[in-house]
Design a protein around this nucleic acid. Structure first.
Lengths: 237, 237
DNA sequence: CGTAGACTTGACGCATGTCAAAGTGCGTGG
DNA sequence: CCACGCACTTTGACATGCGTCAAGTCTACG
């Protein structure tokens, strides 16, 4: 399973001296069905976790960035595939080493548990999106998530120059579609809709700027629950 | 958060001497936003966990039955509502008591962790359904889930008389709809479709029999990953 | 028995999917 | 440096699955 960056990722220290692995875009790190004997920490870049049915339908479960963690399951096999989106470096550690670390250090296990809870809450956010929101709303939520991840990743506290409002989209349209339960054409049209309502501007294929953050949040319905929940008070902006 | 019945729910012993609470159908056990100071174990009946947006859209995240667990979150507040579907009895325990039990007994904490992983995997199953499957397929998966839960609950190993193929639907159509990301009318029509294809028969409003289990599984695409994953070998049937 | 709530069914509309074509940017080789 | 080609994205026209709205039917319960 995968974990979002936490407040104090103190269990990630098992990766401190760990060997690293470099991945090219599209390269597969974990094959669904393989024996789940290793866990990974993303050092930079981005990977996506997905499930693909035998009929080719694919659902992306999450995009992972720096300091996110993948690989632990309740069974002996991975039930998902992990694939690099861009050039990515990961640290590798054996499952048993992680389990020992968890067993021996209560504080670490506590942290891990907390992370798991947050991941679960993120999964339920996605469930709400897929079950209840329209295409444009899902895209709005997605852009806000990317903005948020970027902020956490870069540790940006104040945002004078509005750097945060430039959102990079390292993944292709089809990947976004398979994450949001849509088709790539619908993703395109939803981008246009957001642009026409002047909530965003498409600078380039893989770069959009948020023009009206408040309206985007309103559309995403972020007030209800969702995202900026894992942020400490320092980070509100 | 909620947990599905595990192979050895040895951490549930904290509820052994715990006070119980009786709930009538529709009664709310947990209000979203309330302080998350208590955790619960379902003794009998059924509850549903859901999120409702300010605009009234509701997504049911899970239905919980005997020996399922709810209440732990990564934050100090519940972000979901828990409501009884039928008459239900739950055992109550303070969050701090659970945390102490987890901290003091490594085996218990390990079990809890495993359960959390399984819950997460179930959440991702739901994500796949909502993102990729059609209405009829979602309903097929749902019926198989109910069958599975029933089996685990009753601990049915062999099923000579085919009792398992009678599936009870204690929740209303709208609840099913809000779980599957559909509208109640669509749920109705999907039931009819399944009946017309002779995969099921509707005995009563709240009781269907599975007529063609293999075909239902095929339709649900259960082979790909999904359900009978938490079953020990003894339970295969 | 009668009424109220839940479920089903039907007719219709709209959001999203499908299929096809045109546009865009980017790397490669001339 | 330019031109070509390829992969990705956008756009358009059309199809369809699911949602909406409004009758109808069933069932439980008084």
């Amino acid at each position: 399973m995968n974990l979002t960056p936490g407040s104090h990722d103190l269990f990630l220290d098992i990766f401190d001296e760990a060997p690293v692995l470099d991945l090219d875009p599209g390269e597969v790190l974990i094959h669904a069905g393989a024996k789940a004997d290793r866990v990974f920490n993303i050092l930079n870049g981005m990977v996506m976790v997905h499930r693909t049915g035998s009929d080719g339908r694919r659902q992306i479960l999450s995009f992972l960035v720096r300091n996110n963690f993948v690989g632990l399951t309740s069974t002996d096999d991975y039930f998902f595939t992990v694939e690099a989106v861009v050039k990515t470096r990961v640290a590798v550690c054996s499952r048993t080493a992680l389990m020992e670390r968890l067993a021996n250090d209560p504080a670490v296990e506590r942290t891990y548990l907390n992370m798991l809870h947050r991941v679960l809450e993120d999964a339920y956010d996605l469930v709400y999106s897929l079950g209840q929101r329209t295409a444009v709303e899902r895209l709005a939520v997605f852009l806000l998530y990317l903005r948020y991840w970027h902020r956490v990743c870069e540790n940006i506290v104040d945002d004078q120059d509005g750097r945060l409002n430039q959102v990079a989209l390292p993944m292709g349209r089809e990947d976004i579609a398979d994450f949001l339960g849509l088709k790539k054409e619908t993703v395109s049209r939803s981008f246009r809709q957001l642009e026409e309502s002047e909530l965003i501007h498409r600078d380039e294929r893989s770069l959009v700027s948020i023009r009206n953050l408040a309206a985007l949040r309103e559309l995403a319905g972020i007030r209800d629950f969702a995202s900026p929940r894992h942020l400490s008070a320092d980070f509100q902006s």
